[in-house]
Write a protein that binds this DNA or RNA. Structure first.
Length: 832
RNA sequence: GCGAGAGUGGCGGAACUGGUAGACGCACUGGAUUUAGGAUCCAGCGCACUAGCGUGCAUGGGGGUUCAACUCCCCCCUCUCGCACCA
């Protein structure tokens, strides 16, 4: 029987080395950040994790990318802030607590302990003194203060909305918890229910949030596009249509006021209040049926399903204030109450949806905008003409272009008092009420005499009671915990009820980046000087799944805090990097697919440096990373190769002079040159676009050259100084990526100063300059030969040499040479 | 349907403002060393034809601009992501 192979045989002892340096960094507080106005700051932030239990490969990748940048910037002399914390409130803790019969707080804090240890084992350079957890009252107390300040400023309000309600669980469900119209937990039918909830007036900031997108030049265009679409600004007009035989007015919003003469009916959302007008008409029964049928159908609708356009006449007409036309009012299933005014003027000739609806119900079609190249006929129209054109059948506006008509018609409506220019947004106010336990309590009190009252600032924080915990009913225990909800009204002193809803956890992550600047500050939420020194975040890194909500909310909060005078930046994140997913075997890692890779096992088998190296090497950060176990072995091999070389040349490296001799031999010069070229390449890759994969490839090339020169160098005639220079550069260039490994080898090779105190290496352009360059010779665009020449060669000489070249002559033959193109120092193309 | 991005060897991926396509790594093949190797070292490795020197052909497909196109322009196909009746 074979002996059990020795663990790590043939490999460097990464376990020892990594433990040694991690201990060192922790005890020396190496990465502690202090404010220093004399130094250039760099705030690097990765999206903090939800403490779900353990770190996954997505975290490993995200935080490896961030750590390289943090360490790189430190070496470049920046004062770097690189904090880490925990997005610690949220529903999973409640579910886990139920499942394991524990308390969400206990579960959360245990996870934090475990995951913190995992992050430390990866060697990430965080300033742990700034660690924060959002479920800590010392954190959320300030969020409650913000809430009250926002309330005082009119940025918080309470209103009734329709929510997804599960009767058996007695709770509100988020949209993503409703699966095919059923509760994710008990499979009961989810019903719409009207409930009170608290809202942040994010729409007040819609315009600024949109406009400022143009200044976010350090963000991916993709994310900005998503944000712009989400805000969804449209410019148009609001027009009043009086309803016949009533004193009611139907307000509509349109982006096409130029088509107003073509309106032949009206479409209301089923929820629109004026739908009730049908009640006293013969249509009453039909309308009521339609409305309830539509509401149910909507809830059961699959996300990508297109429903058939339907509607019913509500028994009333309104008058087009422009034309005096009498138009029937319908309610239709494709009109959304949430957008605009919930009512649409239907112009079948110029809107495809209205066109389909009109054809189905035999409603008139009236062309009022003619294209410039042909004449449309209302009778024979096959589809709506949605482009702009020239107005027709529009009274005094005939002959105007659509653009002119929009302005003229809007102005006319304003003049006559039945309309005005209006801008609407798709963005809705942010509903933050959650009927959950594990979240920040909303600091409000309901008094039957005084109404809603904010908790006085001196009474903050409203602590989430630890003696409650979720039970299987699904209902928040806060609703029934008397010691929590029973309180006194701050206005009249009478008995009152505390708000028992908690805040959406997106609120915590909307300002944590600011708190990192001063996590120990007790006099208020934010210490102005420190916050203003560090903010904005210079580089933010995280998954693209947060491209809309988290980033939009964080931007909103930053502007609110600015207006509340807590900080003075307009935007929180100057540069944004959205890293790709980690996939394996062509699919996202997931338990159900069975392709999950456990970081712990990888660290044990290969060490943290190898895991970091591979996750940086396999793909550029913004692209998806295809995980490959074989690839990890390759990364490990590379580090071992470097380690072996350094170990076996330790004495030479320790004693080699730092100064380069002036008369190096050819091979030494080649190594010296490659060293400087590599520094140049790696510096550029890291500075420009964080393309670590090509940076690492460049270092590998340097190492390959070094090893091949040594192995064929029996005479040992390569200058030790050149070798030392190459090894030092290798260690410095890899330091941000494989910090334990490089620190150890740096020490072994006799440096007295620690690697972590070294500056980023610089290259000498003279040293990096090639002695000889290859110039490609083409005949008629095809490569036929190559010339090895001095880099100082002139174009004339190059041309001359090319024409003398055997291969060139062979392929030119006796054809006349038409022209010769010379790209300096690169290429010659002979056209014959 | 709309919007954005991408398509390069067996695989992950390189290629600066149009100028040697395939860096680096993985896999694979042959060899060396070894009791053995899943360790290490050396060599090869886009495809086709060729004994070889070579010569064609190649960056999703088709056209175009150019001395020269992965790169620029037009059309088409496929995939990924986001939005999806937004009036």
């Amino acid at each position: 029987m074979n002996p059990v192979p020795q663990k790590n045989s043939g490999r460097y002892d990464f376990a020892f080395i990594e433990d040694k340096w991690q201990r060192h960094w922790l005890t020396q507080n190496t990465f502690k950040a202090s404010e220093d106005s004399a130094r250039r700051k760099y705030y690097l932030l990765e999206m903090f994790p939800y403490p779900s239990g353990k770190i996954h490969m997505g975290h490993v990748r995200n935080y490896s990318i961030g750590d390289v940048i943090a360490r790189f910037k430190r070496m470049q002399g920046y004062n770097v802030l690189h904090p880490m914390g925990w997005d610690a409130f949220g529903l999973p803790a409640e579910n886990a607590a139920l499942k394991h019969d524990t308390h969400p707080a206990k579960w959360t804090y245990e996870n934090i302990d475990y995951m913190k240890n995992q992050l430390q084992r990866m060697g990430f350079s965080y300033d742990w003194d700034r660690e924060l957890a959002t479920c800590d009252p010392e954190y959320y107390r300030w969020e409650q203060l913000f809430f009250i300040k926002m309330y005082e400023k009119g940025l918080v309000y309470r209103k009734m909305t329709t929510v997804n309600w599960c009767e058996s669980c007695q709770t509100v469900l988020a949209n993503e918890q409703v699966i095919d119209g059923q509760c994710w937990r008990c499979d009961n039918q989810v019903l719409p229910q009207d409930m009170h909830g608290w809202f942040f007036r994010i729409t007040d900031y819609a315009e600024e949030l949109l406009a400022e997108c143009d200044n976010l030049t350090g963000w991916p265009e993709k994310v900005l596009t998503m944000q712009r679409n989400w805000i969804g600004k449209s410019i148009g007009a609001e027009i009043d249509f009086p309803v016949e035989n009533t004193d009611q007015v139907l307000k509509i919003f349109t982006t096409r006021p130029d088509t107003i003469f073509g309106a032949t009916f009206m479409s209301l959302a089923p929820e629109h209040p004026l739908v009730d007008l049908s009640r006293h008409t013969s249509q009453a029964e039909q309308v009521a049926q339609f409305v309830s049928r539509t509401k149910i159908a909507r809830k059961q609708q699959k996300p990508d399903e297109e429903i058939e356009k339907e509607g019913v006449f509500i028994g009333h007409y309104c008058i087009n204030p422009f034309s005096g036309d009498r138009i029937p009012i319908y309610t239709a299933n494709f009109v959304l109450m949430e957008y605009g005014t919930g009512a649409v003027m239907a112009v079948p000739a110029h809107d495809q949806r209205d066109f389909e609806f009109a054809r189905k119900y035999n409603l008139p079609v009236k062309v009022v905008v003619q294209p410039r190249d042909k004449q449309l006929d209302s009778e024979t129209l096959l589809e709506a003409f949605e482009d702009t054109g020239v107005l027709a059948a529009s009274a005094q506006f005939d002959g105007l272009s659509s653009a002119e008509a929009k302005i003229a018609i809007t102005a006319f409506a304003a003049e006559q008092g039945f309309g005005k220019g209006m801008t609407t947004y798709r963005l809705r106010d942010w509903g933050i009420s959650r009927q959950r336990y594990w979240g920040t309590p909303i600091p409000m009190i309901h008094c039957s005499t005084c109404g809603v009252q904010p908790v006085p600032e001196d009474d903050l924080p409203v602590i989430l009671p630890a003696d409650a915990k979720p039970d299987s009913s699904g209902s928040s225990p806060l609703h029934s915990l008397e010691s929590f909800y029973k309180t006194l009204c701050p206005a009249c002193g009478e008995e009152a009820r505390r708000e028992t809803d908690t805040m959406d956890t997106f609120v915590e992550s909307s300002w944590y980046f600011a708190r990192y600047a001063c996590p120990d500050f007790t006099d208020g939420p934010l210490d102005r000087d420190r916050v203003n020194y560090w903010l904005p975040v210079d580089q933010y890194i995280g998954g693209v799944e947060h491209a809309i909500l988290h980033l939009l909310y964080a931007r909103f909060f930053t502007k609110v805090l600015r207006d509340l005078d807590y900080l003075s930046t307009d935007e929180p994140f100057k540069n944004l990097l959205t890293q790709g997913m980690v996939i394996k075997d062509g699919a996202k890692m997931s338990k159900s697919k069975g392709n999950v890779v456990d970081p712990n096992k990888l660290i044990e088998e290969f060490g943290a440096d190898t895991v970091r190296l591979f996750s940086l090497f396999a793909a550029p950060p913004e692209k998806d990373l295809d995980w490959s176990n074989k690839g990890v072995e390759g990364a490990s091999r590379f580090l071992n190769r470097v380690h072996r070389f350094v170990e076996s040349n330790r004495e030479m490296l320790t004693s080699a002079p730092d100064q380069q001799a002036s008369n190096l031999n050819e091979k030494s010069r080649a190594l010296h040159r490659k060293t400087h070229q590599t520094i140049r390449k790696v510096t550029r890759d890291l500075e420009n676009d964080f393309h670590f994969n090509t940076a690492i490839a460049a270092v590998m090339e340097l190492v390959n050259l070094l090893l091949s020169l040594i192995s064929e160098n029996a005479e040992n005639d390569i200058a030790p100084a050149a070798i030392k220079e190459a090894v030092d550069a290798t260690l410095l260039l890899l330091a941000p990526m494989t910090p334990h490994f490089c620190s150890e080898l740096w020490e072994i090779t006799g440096h007295e100063e620690l690697l972590e105190n070294q500056s980023w290496p610089t290259f000498n352009p003279e040293s990096a300059k090639d002695e000889e360059i290859i110039v490609v010779l083409q005949v008629n665009g095809k490569v036929r030969s190559r010339l090895l020449v001095s880099p100082d060669i002139g174009n004339d000489e190059l041309k001359e040499l090319s024409l003398l070249d055997d291969k060139v002559q062979k392929f030119v033959g006796n054809k006349p040479i038409k022209k010769v193109i010379v790209v300096p120092k690169k290429l010659v193309n002979v056209v014959a």
